[in-house]
Design a binder for these strands. Structure first.
Lengths: 107, 107
DNA sequence: TTGGTACCTTTGTATTACAAGGTAGCTTTA
DNA sequence: TAAAGCTACCTTGTAATACAAAGGTACCAA
């Protein structure tokens, strides 16, 4: 899919939920997240991710553990908290609701 | 569905496409649009809609015809242009793509 | 002439992503 | 053992832009 600027406003704000979704699937650190996002239309930068993750931690949606690496400095591996899981569930509900709304308006 | 501020950022940018969707279904003027949106989580104000419609007209996604009313001043009834129809089609594709992306990231 | 409907513009706010710059730990190599 | 290079962490400032709120004009009917 093209990195079409046309849909920028829609992408906005969605990133946070994609992060929740990614973390729910795997234990990952920032470089992993970026790699996964790179495969999608949501490729992003460190400077975007770090502040976002800090915010999400302050809000207690995610937590992390330090974990050593074979080659290089230790990494922060993120995981969802209980609150993060229910946030993700809410998001999925809302997403389903959006689908309904869009379909309804089209007739 | 709640008017939950949590999802504000997601709603943002989506409005334009909902408008396209509404216009694609019916010939409507602004008050009609507002009524339809009121049934959803996208209830909005005149002050939001008019500038948006002006922009969409400049971009040639919509056009309008004046039509007299039984009671009151004439109304602008909007319809999609060819360009607007293909814009809506693109949006639907993109939306489908978003669904795919979200599902993919969740495992 | 009053009240209601319909149109439109201007201004301000808030959000968000990115770019750029900065610190520090670990490994490799000279 | 020093230094060079890589990896990983993080912060600050900027620009874009969408939306909402408020204010304003004009037409029509009673």
């Amino acid at each position: 899919m093209s990195a079409d600027q046309k849909f920028n406003p829609i992408r906005k704000g969605l990133l946070e939920f994609l992060i929740l979704q990614i973390i729910s699937a795997d234990k990952v650190y920032v470089a992993d997240m970026m790699k996964r996002l790179q495969e999608t239309d949501f490729a992003t930068q460190e400077g975007t991710l770090y502040p976002l993750l800090s915010k999400m931690r302050r809000e207690e949606f995610v937590d992390y553990e330090w974990q050593e690496s074979d080659s290089g400095p230790p990494r922060k591996y993120y995981k969802l908290t209980a609150k993060g899981k229910s946030q993700l569930a809410e998001f999925k509900d809302y997403w389903a609701y959006l689908n309904t709304t869009i379909n309804q308006l089209g007739r």
